[in-house]
Design a protein around this nucleic acid. Structure first.
Lengths: 238, 238
DNA sequence: ACGGTAGGTGTACGGCGTACACCTGTCAAG
DNA sequence: CTTGACAGGTGTACGCCGTACACCTACCGT
């Protein structure tokens, strides 16, 4: 009977999924080995029979969420394919707001991240990019590819972060900071009367993201058509 | 006599500078209130007479390093001004490799960060940008403005991060991962025989950074000259 | 029937942030 | 010159954290 109570015998995968769920629900700072073990109805040290340590747990969580990114489509041109891929990655990161920081804070990419990046390069190469140009494009897209940092003050990021929790809707920009940063305030105001909302959510994140993405993609496409190469620029002679 | 030994009576500024120095030297994970107090020749709780808690300490450190970014120059056009500013920010972040993660992990920007962003907007506005376009440009430049994430595997980032320390020079891409990610390997190889180095340091980070930056800036300039406005696009009618 | 082993348990250690009571040196007011 | 308030450094203690290590137990192939 006690058996039936704590069934499903604690797998590495079960641990990773529970960890992702815990981080999603309560923030990455609430993800301790002890809390996770409690969620799984088990003693903390039991986890160590399946993951080496907390760093490896984080790597496993990253692999789980990066694995949620849609696979590449090869029935469309490179630009559309990359675009869809990046938008899919963005959706994943919105579902798992702890992921950007977690990915960035690991000192080396996990297998899943490398695999994702590799497949993006593959799409570019198949689209006619030279290795040289594809290389630079990957650098140029950098944070866009995994959606990092595109919104420093993104409300979804505030969920359970290191700082103290405060009243959830700060209700428009507080006047004292609006006074200190007039240009920011001007922008916030312009965005606000666009759809009658507040600074945090007053602008269309999706629109902003696609604006930046399309700007980059258009520029890149232009370079590609010109057969751009780094040798033509200030780098020393090839 | 004991007086002369522990002189310079522990100021908030002295604490912040020591904290920045400690994080620079030993990594952000080595920055504990206890270690910092020891560096200052003082008992841990003494720090709390000058900073409210560790989060406020981090905010103060961010203000210190963001304050190192060069002030704006108004004797050049907007493009050159923004470019110099962003490159100055990048140099600061290279000096303080812990800063991007620290800035990103705070749930709201510090005063110094807001001030920096505000002055960038000011430069754009003075250069003839509409508030609308300046708004989108700030989003588009996003991570570039503070240099985040442009090199996921930047060697300078590995200094004292969460993971285990390993042999410092991995000496070119290990063959087994080169085999699993052929397109990455192809790119790494191309970069390597450009200057005979390895993947981690085989490409010219500065060049990559400026490539991406100039691509964005050129695209932005084009939009600016066209009098681009979001109303002309898929957003609903103004 | 039995020995090995995979996997869950309990205890313990050192480090963390920090609350709280305490002490001490300085300096203004009487 | 005394005094007492107060700014600022100290000491102790608490509850978290990750995890090393010894243990126990239930299953499984021989």
């Amino acid at each position: 009977m006690a058996d039936t109570l704590h069934r499903t015998p604690l797998t590495r995968e079960r641990i990773l999924l529970a960890a992702v769920a815990l981080a999603d629900a309560s923030g990455i700072q609430a993800l301790s080995m002890r809390n996770l073990a409690q969620d799984l109805g088990v003693v903390p040290m039991a986890l160590y029979k399946h993951v080496a340590n907390k760093d490896e747990l984080l790597d496993g969580m990253i692999d789980v969420v990066v694995g949620e990114i849609d696979p590449p489509r090869d029935d469309v041109d490179w630009k559309r394919s990359v675009r869809l891929r990046i938008l899919s990655a963005r959706q994943m990161l919105i579902r798992h707001p702890w992921a950007p920081l977690a990915i960035e804070s690991r000192n080396m990419a996990t297998v899943a991240v490398l695999s994702y990046l590799d497949s993006v390069v593959a799409t570019l190469r198949a689209g006619g990019f030279s290795t040289d140009l594809a290389h630079h494009v990957m650098h140029a897209m950098g944070s866009r590819i995994l959606g990092f940092s595109q919104e420093l003050f993104d409300a979804s990021r505030r969920a359970g972060q290191t700082g103290a929790v405060e009243a959830d809707p700060p209700a428009a920009m507080p006047p004292e900071i609006a006074a200190r940063f007039p240009h920011l305030a001007e922008i916030a105001a312009a965005a606000a009367h666009d759809d009658g909302s507040v600074v945090g959510s007053g602008c269309d994140d999706q629109f902003e993201f696609e604006f930046a993405l399309d700007l980059l993609l258009d520029g890149i496409e232009r370079l590609r058509q010109q057969g751009w190469t780094s040798a033509a620029h200030t780098r020393r002679a090839a």
